Simulated assay, not measured.
Amino acid sequence: MGTARSTSCWHRSWQLLLLLLGLLLLSPKLCDAVTMQQFLQSLDMMRNGCMGKFKVPLDTLDRLRDGDFSFEPSQDLLCYTKCVAQLAGILTKKGDFSVNKAMAQMPIILPAELQDPAQKALNHCKDEPKAHKDQCAQVYYISKCMADYDRPNFKFP
């Protein structure tokens, strides 16, 4: 009985997320006006959407947020990063990391001051996913590469 309730709740959460993303895509003014505060709030929403699915300590997630990848990741942590990428709309239909989708999402989800640094970091790290067959590892290691490339501008949910 609890499973049906949680599945229903999960389904409603996805519907709400899709509705919000749809509104962002349909409203250029909203897309152009993403502030740093709105961006940080969206990081919290993505974190909350993925945190309960994987056994990752909050202090580990806080370290990631600040770009600290100086520890051996668990499989749960690897898959947490994939979950975030899925929420951000930067995975292919097969679940692989997509540089093109990530580039297309930047003007929508990043504040203006982070767009250029993020594009440079992504271009620098664009081949990183090719080194990993595991889809969860693809996202984790491109994120790590981007954090290593430009830690002051790196943010992760």
Rank of each mutant, 00 (worst) to 15 (best):
P129E: 09
F39I: 03
A33H: 08
Y141W: 15
D32F: 11
V84Q: 01
R5T: 08
T81H: 05
C145L: 06
S8L: 15
R5H: 09
L17S: 06
G2V: 14
M103H: 07
W10R: 13
Q86V: 04
F69T: 00
V56N: 05
M1G: 13
A85V: 04
A112S: 13
F39S: 08
P117E: 08
C125N: 05
S98F: 01
A102F: 06
M36E: 03
L77D: 00
D76P: 03
A131K: 15
A33Q: 02
W14P: 00
Q105D: 00
D66P: 01
D66S: 10
D134P: 04
A88W: 04
D96P: 03
Y149V: 01
C9M: 15
S27N: 12
K155F: 09
R63H: 14
K93C: 02
C125H: 14
K130M: 10
F54H: 15
S8V: 12
S42P: 01
Q105R: 15
A33P: 00
T3S: 14
Y140L: 08
F97Y: 15
D44K: 15
A147P: 00
D59V: 13
D66G: 13
H124K: 13
Y149R: 05
K130W: 04
L21M: 07
L78G: 00
L87E: 02
F54L: 06
A33K: 09
P107H: 05
S143W: 12
G52Y: 07
P73S: 07
L91I: 05
K133V: 13
S6W: 11
P107T: 01
C79K: 06
D59N: 11
Q86R: 08
G22C: 06
M103Q: 09
L17T: 07
A131W: 14
G22D: 04
P117F: 05
L87K: 10
L21F: 09
P157E: 07
L122N: 03
N123D: 07
D127A: 13
A118P: 05
L19T: 05
V139P: 02
G95W: 11
D62V: 13
M46G: 06
S27G: 00
K53V: 04
Y141L: 05
V56A: 10
Q75F: 15
D150E: 02
R47A: 05
P57N: 09
L17A: 12
V84L: 07
S70V: 01
C136P: 01
D44T: 08
Y80E: 01
C79V: 04
A102C: 10
P129M: 09
A104R: 09
L64R: 12
Q37A: 14
K101H: 07
K55G: 07
P28I: 01
V34Q: 10
Y140C: 04
D150H: 08
S13T: 12
L91G: 02
D134A: 03
P111E: 10
K144E: 03
A137H: 13
Q37C: 08
Y140H: 13
K155G: 00
L122M: 12
R5M: 04
R65Y: 15
S6A: 10
A118E: 02
P157K: 06
K29I: 11
K93R: 15
R65S: 11
G95L: 09
A85P: 03
A102E: 04
Y80P: 02
C31V: 07
T92N: 01
M36T: 07
Q119A: 14
L21N: 07
N100H: 11
P157D: 05
S143D: 06
Q75H: 09
